Amino acid sequence: MALRCFIVDDSPHFLAAAQTLLERDGFAVVGVAGSSEEALRRVEDAEPDVVLVDVDLGGESGFDLVRRFERETSLDQSRVILISTYTEEDLGDLVQSAPAAAFLSKSSLSAGAIRGILDRNP
Rank of each mutant, 00 (worst) to 15 (best):
I7C: 04
I7K: 06
V8M: 10
D10K: 02
H13Y: 12
H13P: 01
F14Q: 03
A18T: 05
A18N: 05
Q19M: 03
L22R: 02
E23F: 04
R24V: 06
D25G: 14
V29Q: 04
V30N: 02
G31S: 08
G31M: 06
G31N: 08
G34W: 00
S36R: 14
E37V: 13
E37Y: 02
A39T: 02
L40M: 14
V43P: 06
V43F: 03
E44M: 13
E47N: 15
E47Q: 15
L52S: 07
L52R: 01
L52I: 08
D54A: 06
V55G: 07
D56M: 13
D56P: 00
G58N: 06
G58V: 09
G62P: 09
L65H: 10
R67S: 14
E70I: 01
E70N: 14
E72C: 12
D76W: 01
S78A: 13
R79E: 01
V80S: 10
I83D: 01
T87S: 15
E88D: 01
D90F: 08
D90T: 13
G92S: 07
D93K: 15
V95L: 09
Q96D: 15
Q96S: 15
S97C: 11
S97A: 15
A98T: 09
A100Y: 08
F103Q: 08
L104W: 04
L104Q: 06
S105F: 00
S105D: 03
S105R: 14
K106L: 11
K106E: 10
S108E: 13
S108Y: 05
L109T: 00
G112I: 02
A113F: 04
R115V: 14
G116A: 14
G116N: 14
L118N: 03
D119G: 02
D119A: 14
D119P: 02
P122S: 12
